[in-house]
Amino acid sequence: MRCSALYCMTKSNFLLSVMALLACGTAMAQLPTYNVGRTPTEAELRAVDDLVGSDGKELPPGSGTAKEGAPIYAAQCAVCHGQNGEGVNRYPRLVGGVGSLNTPHPIKTVGSNMPYATTIWDFINRAMPPFPMERNLSPDNVYALTAFILSKNGIIKETNVMNKNSLVEVQMPNRHGFYPDPPHSTLEKDGFWTPRWEQTKPAAK
């Protein structure tokens, strides 16, 4: 879709012409050579750009404390995860298990296993409570629920405010429980994804 700036500027409404210019500018991009695809609108991009990584740069504004999270947890989470995060039946336990990972009966929970608090925020935000109720929590609610789970694990205090900045700074107990650290991804050079079979393969018979 091409549209000349000149055409836009002849319009009497200046705002409209600016909007049209912007639209023209963004709609120009396509896959080179094949000329298919288009630049997503901001709304389209926002709809899919919802994953939160460990540096938290995608985290939205908002905040919450464990105290604020408690009633939300009781109403929407406890039925599966238990009143105190102990898990109900086969549903995942969220609390405890620290110190169990090197025993014959390891207990992986948010507290004992997860290296970054952003993972909790991301998963609650995108997938909890499960279908068809997911994606209905406000950012404040997600911050509050994350704070509640962290607090139940003794990682933060009940009054600590979780927000875009503080969440990233939370030190998870199992932060260094994984290797390689940090995961890297070059191919043949350091052999990250081809690897362990090469390093540890059994001797040929």
Binding site: L51, L101, P106, Y116
Partner: peptide, 21 residues
């Protein structure tokens, strides 16, 4: 960097006897 998504942290890591995965 990898994004440490829930499934790649909780279930799809390989815990070793020393407690590291």
């Amino acid at each position: 960097k990898p994004y440490y998504m829930q499934r790649e942290i909780s279930a799809y890591t390989n815990l070793k006897p020393d407690g590291k995965a």
